[in-house]
Design a protein around this nucleic acid. Structure first.
Lengths: 357, 357
DNA sequence: TACCGCAGAGAAAGCCCTTTCCCGCAGGGA
DNA sequence: TCCCTGCGGGAAAGGGCTTTCTCTGCGGTA
């Protein structure tokens, strides 16, 4: 590889001058020398060594991002938001997939710190795991102590700046919708119970049911991987245990799609026989058939906010931006198939005029 | 940030010794000193500066990857394959999204070269653009001249090692299938015509139709973005121009999903009234309703092969691995709705017993 | 006892840049 | 004519790490 001094030698100037030309330094250089340097760069196909540059320059510019998996639509959308702001500000993003492995997450914090990133964004659910949480917070604190900035998306465990989707309210929305449609036998297809996202969404859902005089026993919940196959499998288990279910809440859209697949395989019409509500409103939700009724989270906006927060000025106190969830009614949730013997939930159910456009 | 000499000072040793302990050098260090160093590392939360390390070490280990967009399922699958091999070999991947912008692609080649990657993988379609192709090849050649290794996935324009999906054969498969089902009026929803992927798939398709005595006039092809919305829009244009179409080939699955959306919006039943065939077989294809008939490409395997090639020993001659396409029959392609006046295609149509399970 | 060899530790030379500091020189004012 | 100013350029000092080379001191052999 050609180095700067190769270029300088070829152009007959000092490395200092070559550097100034290449980086467009504010210090003036004669046109004659400038051209000689540029010519040498072209001839030698010179590309500056990024590591040497980062070492020599003091200011750090890249931003590190740790997500579960960029190709998961949930994180893809968030990342889109992150990118948008980062690109505007000329920042490079280093994105790492933790695949929800706590150890890998810890490793990546170190790795990114080692790569001298100016800031760190952690996106994705936190864990119910005190030991891990403590370790992570220690690492994050160490990083912040040396001037690094940290923002988390959707995790409570960190005490600093955060962007939080309102998972609990979203769960509540899903639950209320189904209650109002007259459903009494509601099953839940949930992600891993160690994730705070799962428990938060579940808590909101439970609250909605409780308000309608329903409870949500553990046997109506099945925990599985937070993906399509997990959803398919959990739905099958749920149905095997309780064939009378008239509605299923999937705690994310991937699982909802899996649920739909199982339902189709068992020839259970949606929403006539059984309703399904998803969560997240990822792009594909509107394209499955029937189109998925789901709880929408402003994913791109979450990314935008997080990046703005992390690149903006620091604040004396931690800032927490809570972004609202919103119910998107499409075609997978309909009235419960047959009238309930129990009439307790009649009033709210009547409130909803679904026949109107 | 704590530095190595901070650690050394704190442990009362020289930086050399500290370095040896931290990197597990082969040179022996007394247990006593080793422990002092380790303690200092822990106390100081020391993380080595990756840039300094890369500068000091001579051997390069990271691999650069340029794709259209990691969150596009096509590239997500390929990347999964790349990652699998890279992780096995302890390599770090630097993944860049070009968003099909040739200039950005060129920039990323430089960027990755500047980051001293040991190898470079370019995935995604090439362009019908001689000037760009030449520039890219020059940059790649310059990189290879300094010992860098390059593998491309799905692009003919580079003369070195390559992994090639058989796009042309795949197009042929889609065309033949529809002909055998009796379709005569077939429209195509295509990606940008500047992409070689588009023209390759189109060429195979055209060949299949030609063999059946059909031709594929330009007005039966609509070019649009290679995504869901592009597919929806192109389908609408196609239908407006030619309402009698009985089949649509979408040149990737995202476009096929868009096509399905338009068809649903227009209440055209699939496959009774109109058949749809996609391309790629991305994971979601089986979950749309009706499940998508499509041409499968071994995407993960393409990634695996590419990474193996690039990390393996160099070869004297360029190696090109062509991976086969395969038709996956699901539910969006059925017999043409009404018998053709023209009986020319009868024989092949009869060959296929679609009523059988 | 004298000498050799080697284990274990440190000094120092890079790796490739950026940037400060300094120097020479030309032009302008006194 | 002399001095000061300021511009354009180079020398050199890092930036944080790895690694070779060198040095010290110990145990073992003749």
């Amino acid at each position: 590889m050609a180095t700067l001094s190769d270029v300088a030698r070829r152009a007959g100037v000092s490395p200092a001058t070559a550097s100034r030309v290449i980086n467009g330094s504010s210090k003036p250089v004669t046109d004659e020398l400038r051209e000689r340097v540029l010519a040498a760069v072209a001839e030698l196909q010179y590309v500056p060594n990024a590591h040497a540059q980062l070492l020599a320059r003091s200011h750090r510019s890249a931003v590190g991002v740790i997500v579960h998996d960029v190709s998961d639509p949930y994180f893809a959308e968030i990342t889109r938001g992150l990118q948008r702001v980062a690109t505007d500000q000329g920042r490079l993003l280093m994105i790492c997939n933790s695949y929800r492995d706590p150890d890998r997450e810890l490793e990546y914090v170190e790795l990114l710190r080692g790569h001298q990133v100016a800031a760190l964004i952690l996106a994705g659910s936190g864990y119910h795991d005190a030991a891990f949480t403590r370790q992570l917070n220690e690492k994050l604190a160490a990083y912040e102590a040396t001037g690094g900035r940290v923002v988390v998306i959707g995790r409570h465990e960190h005490s600093g700046d955060a962007v939080m989707p309102d998972n609990r309210a979203g769960g509540y929305l899903a639950g209320r919708e189904l209650c109002e449609l007259g459903h009494r036998a509601i099953g839940v297809v949930a992600g891993p119970r160690i994730l705070t996202t799962t428990t938060d969404r579940l808590a909101g859902l439970r609250q909605a049911l409780t308000e309608q005089g329903l409870d949500l026993p553990e046997q109506r919940i099945r925990y599985a991987e937070f993906d399509r196959d997990g959803g398919a499998e959990a739905t099958a288990r749920l149905l095997d245990a309780d064939p009378e279910l008239t509605a299923i809440v999937a705690l994310n859209d991937s699982m909802a799609i899996g649920a739909l697949a199982t339902l189709r395989a068992r020839s259970l019409p949606v929403p006539q026989r059984i309703s399904v509500v998803g969560f997240d409103d990822m792009p594909i939700a509107r394209d499955v058939t029937p189109a998925l009724t789901t709880v929408r989270l402003p994913l791109v906006d979450m990314g935008v906010r997080a990046m703005s927060l992390v690149l903006g000025a620091g604040a004396p106190a931690p800032r927490v931006e809570v972004l609202p969830a919103e119910l998107v009614r499409r075609d997978t949730a309909g009235p419960a198939p047959h009238p309930q013997r129990d009439t307790a939930g009649a009033a709210p159910r009547a409130r909803r005029g679904d026949a109107a456009p």
